[in-house]
């Protein structure tokens, strides 16, 4: 049943995500072609920067759009009129929630892969002057290791981020003592909780984490990874409990 839920959650957002990915890749390819055929080096530099900024803008817009699509899939699928179908399926609600979490992680990973592909399209054949070996020697790791670490770190943060986001949305749809929790209250509570969580993770993991928590791409910190994953699991368990016990479609 989880696979079927994943299939339908994938179908829900595939058009939006594939359109965004196509737009990003197409604009990057156009930039690369322009850089290849454009006039003198100085001219390419100025226009190139403008185009790169434009791609960054598209990237930022698609990042926000990705989050909105993911929020919509969770919120509409569970709490809107469509929830009358989703929540009455002969499937446990934990599977329904996990399906939304996993598909969101899939899309974020695909967007990361797209970013990597964009970087490759722009830089392939252009990095002769850049000493990649020296760059990697700085960190004393291979390309494979650095990618693995980046993917692991990014995924643990995405996992935690999605769980926090979904918990806020769920909380805003809950009824406590017969009264609905106000959405603004849920978001303020979620914001405060996130700040507390970052402080708590840093405290839990020791001072060293301060330097790397927001610079997570290059270093591997197993304990921090484990803490993030455990906390995300706990938050998702709370979401499932809330969906089972406190969410009422009216």
């Amino acid at each position: 049943m989880l696979f079927k839920l994943l299939k339908h959650d994938f179908n829900y957002s595939k058009i939006q995500f594939f359109t965004m990915i196509l737009a990003l890749l197409l604009s990057t390819v156009l930039l690369r072609i322009w850089l290849e055929v454009g006039g003198n080096a100085e001219f390419i530099g100025v226009i190139g920067i403008i185009l790169i900024l434009l791609i960054q803008l598209i990237g930022t817009v698609t990042s926000f759009a990705s989050i909105i699509v993911i929020i919509q899939n969770f919120s509409k699928g569970l709490f809107s009129d469509h929830g009358y179908l989703t929540l009455t399926l002969p499937v446990s609600r934990s599977k329904i929630v996990w399906s939304k979490v996993l598909i969101s992680m899939f899309w974020f990973n695909l967007m990361m892969l797209t970013s990597a592909l964009m970087a490759w399209i722009i830089t392939v054949g252009q990095l002769d002057d850049v000493d990649i070996v020296y760059f990697l020697e700085l960190f004393q790791v291979s390309v494979f290791e650095i990618i693995s670490i980046a993917v692991l770190n990014a995924n643990s943060m995405i996992f935690l981020g999605i769980s926090i986001l979904f918990s806020i949305i769920t909380l805003s749809r809950c009824s406590i003592l017969g009264r609905k929790i106000h959405a603004l209250f849920a978001w303020i509570l979620g914001f405060i909780f996130t700040i507390f969580l970052i402080w708590f993770l840093v405290w839990l993991d020791g001072l060293w984490s301060y330097r790397i928590y927001f610079n997570f791409g290059m270093f591997l910190n197993i304990s921090l990874l484990a803490y993030q994953i455990i906390i995300a699991f706990l938050i998702i368990s709370s979401i499932i409990w809330l969906v089972n016990k406190k969410v009422e479609l009216r």
Binding site: Y12, H82, Y84, L85, T88, P90, V91, S92
Partner: peptide, 19 residues
């Protein structure tokens, strides 16, 4: 879950996802 497999439910809302 078990009961839902026996029930065919038509709510008073448009419950089929419109996308």
């Amino acid at each position: 879950v078990l009961a839902n497999s026996d029930i065919s439910y038509l709510p008073d809302k448009s419950h089929v996802p419109t996308w």
